[in-house]
């Protein structure tokens, strides 16, 4: 490690200043905005204290969106973890073409979300598409299902699509954790007569646990913030059944033109997320220390 503070500051300053200007300052503005009563951008307003908070916290729409966000985050965590674990364990093996597979598995994550949306909107379409005709040919259903027509199916479909986009990313991070488990541990266990299942339970799982913990936190933050897929596929519908907090914030600000209220919801969501992140990282470092 080298000294020379002025140079070090010069190195980090541009990045820090940009982050402060584009993330830090708007975050503070959001707090100020939440204490005012500004409706549309450019219009005036005055400080009204915590009235917005009182209003938002007594609004059933807010609580419903919060609940949907929690379901969204949890379901995504479960689906993505399962898919990612299968993927990571498969890619950890040696087989012809494994290097290509490790590179291209991330394909779903590198295409624009808009393309993801088109792909799945068409595949799930009730007029044409691929899934409905396929299911009908297989005799699973008689008439095409409108996957986006009821709140439950829309939510499930969205969770599937979002997980499809993100699981390879999580899988690669898990793979990084897996490759750090020394292979002589497996060899020693093999000599001790442990079969593959026992090796997984006794070696892979406990040693992967810290990585999984970190990934769950990152995954939760990433899932919570997903907006574009939901907005482009259902716009929060039908009947608000997929309206998560980010969707509600966007609607409040740019559809109902109530900037201050949107800022209030944003601040509440941020406080909630930061609290979660802090608690989770503390829990992880505590269990790691044990």
């Amino acid at each position: 490690m080298r000294g020379s503070t002025p140079l070090a500051i010069a190195f980090v300053a541009p990045a820090l200043l940009l982050l402060a200007a584009i993330l830090g300052w708007p975050l503070i503005s959001a707090v100020v905005l939440s204490l005012q009563n500004i409706r549309a951008i450019g219009t005036g307003g005055e400080l009204i204290g915590f009235d917005n908070y009182a209003e938002v916290l007594s609004d059933a729409t807010f609580w419903r969106a919060g609940g949907i966000s929690i379901v969204w985050v949890l379901a995504n965590a479960v689906v993505q973890t399962i898919l990612a674990l299968i993927t990571a364990l498969a890619l950890q093996q040696n087989f012809p073409g494994v290097r290509i597979a490790r590179t291209w598995v991330i394909l779903t994550w590198i295409v624009p979300t808009v393309v993801t949306v088109i792909i799945w909107r068409w595949l799930f379409s009730s007029s044409g598409g691929m899934i409905n005709p396929l299911l009908m040919q297989l005799g699973v259903i008689e008439r095409p299902i409108g996957f986006f027509n009821t709140p439950t199916t829309a939510m499930a479909t969205l969770i599937f699509i979002n997980s499809w986009r993100w699981f390879p990313f999580i899988a690669l991070m898990m793979l990084a954790g897996l490759t750090r488990i020394p292979s002589d541990l497996y060899e020693a266990a093999r000599l001790d007569g442990a079969n593959s299942w026992r090796r997984f339970i006794r070696i892979t799982w406990p040693l992967l646990a810290p990585t999984m913990g970190v990934l769950l936190v990152i995954g939760t933050l990433l899932s919570f913030n997903v907006f574009d897929i939901i907005w482009l596929l259902t716009s929060g519908g039908p009947a608000g059944g997929t309206r998560t907090l980010p969707v509600l914030i966007y609607e409040t600000a740019f559809k109902s033109y109530n900037l201050s209220e949107a800022a209030t919801i944003s601040v509440l969501a941020t406080v909630f997320l930061m609290g979660f992140a802090l608690l989770a990282t503390r829990y992880i470092s505590k269990t790691e220390a044990q």
Partner: peptide, 11 residues
């Protein structure tokens, strides 16, 4: 990472 990017969109 820990706050929704949509928060800063408005300001």
């Amino acid at each position: 990472y820990a706050f929704p990017s949509i928060v800063v969109l408005i300001p």
